[in-house]
Design a protein around this nucleic acid. Structure first.
Lengths: 176, 176
DNA sequence: CTTTCAGTGTTATATTATCACTCGAACCTC
DNA sequence: GAGGTTCGAGTGATAATATAACACTGAAAG
């Protein structure tokens, strides 16, 4: 229940391993994550409504990515029945705020665990094909290189996606 | 009908501009594209069946990306009515053969115009938000950098994709 | 020539996403 | 606080994308 957590003493989420053990997802950290999301909404003068918070909590509570309808189902289990469109609207707001990301290759969503909006360094996504875990690692250099490649084609880039599928460290180890 | 094509005399499709003018999509080039696909299937001892060819032709005939159901509709217009699953099965075979690509961010497909399977250099995809045109440019360096980033996270990468949305040269020009 | 299996057909269903319209709550200005 | 404006959400319908399950057929391999 409580967490000894000797891990590291760097205050913020800036890269430890992108694939922490699931046990490290404590209730305390979860609350902090929600807090942080609330703050980001406040800072941007956008409402962190009950619905948005609930949707965010479902996403943040899963270590893997989660689809809109799975979110809906889990909320229904807890007594909140909403239409898909409402889920999607909440998701849109959360995406805009940057507190969740969309995994294009799975049409699913996961909570941003880096929260380095401040630094402006953008992450690439690593998605485990076995356990579904999603990790983020810095991709600033990669995005810059992509920008150059686009420029070379006279293409005016606006949005870039980089996703990698494979095995996370734990699953790769199990797999031998 | 016939094509003066002064463009260039390099025999293969290896990069001219990734966004050629649509007028350059001549019937002759189209036939060559289908030929090339057929050859790739033959080389791999996979059957380039009538269905697969028809699906490929619909994809190759559009300069933008195209969804599975749009393919189905166009084939129906030409008198061939098939179920979605059949379209998807054909698409799977075409993807496997590498003659088409999947645009993850749009759940749509487009014909590979580089055909540099031989070189092993993998492309990134540039998708125009205005006209829908899709271009490919070499991304070997980018993929290598992604590979290193994944390795740094002890992530065993298997599939990678890079997609960029923005404006193609022609639309960017119009846009001022 | 028969065995085999990749390819296809048929039907049904699952999953993901959006539209059109309305209503109410929060928020702002006075 | 009254009135106006905007944003968020509810409702019901529907579109778009993708797969499951099972049967059948024909071409290639032996």
């Amino acid at each position: 229940m409580s967490q000894p957590t000797p891990v590291s003493h760097s205050a913020d989420a800036q890269s430890r391993t992108p694939f922490p053990a699931p046990e490290q997802q404590t209730a305390k950290k979860f609350a902090q994550t929600v807090e942080r999301a609330a703050k980001i909404f406040a800072d941007r003068s956008i409402r962190f409504t009950k619905l948005r918070q609930q949707v965010f909590e479902e996403i943040a509570a899963t270590y893997t990515s989660i689809g809109a309808y799975e979110i809906q189902a889990r909320m229904a289990d807890k007594g909140t029945r909403v239409a898909p469109i409402s889920i999607y609207r909440a998701i849109d707001a959360l995406l805009d705020a940057g507190v969740i990301h969309r995994l294009e290759s799975k049409n699913a969503f996961f909570a941003c665990r880096r929260m380095d909006h401040t630094t402006g360094r953008r992450p690439i996504f690593l998605s485990c094909e076995k356990c579904g875990a999603v990790g983020e690692v810095d991709g600033q250099q990669i995005f810059e290189l992509i920008g150059e490649a686009a420029k070379g084609a006279k293409f005016s880039a606006r949005v870039k996606f980089v996703e990698v599928q494979g095995l996370c460290p734990r699953c790769a180890a199990k797999d031998t």
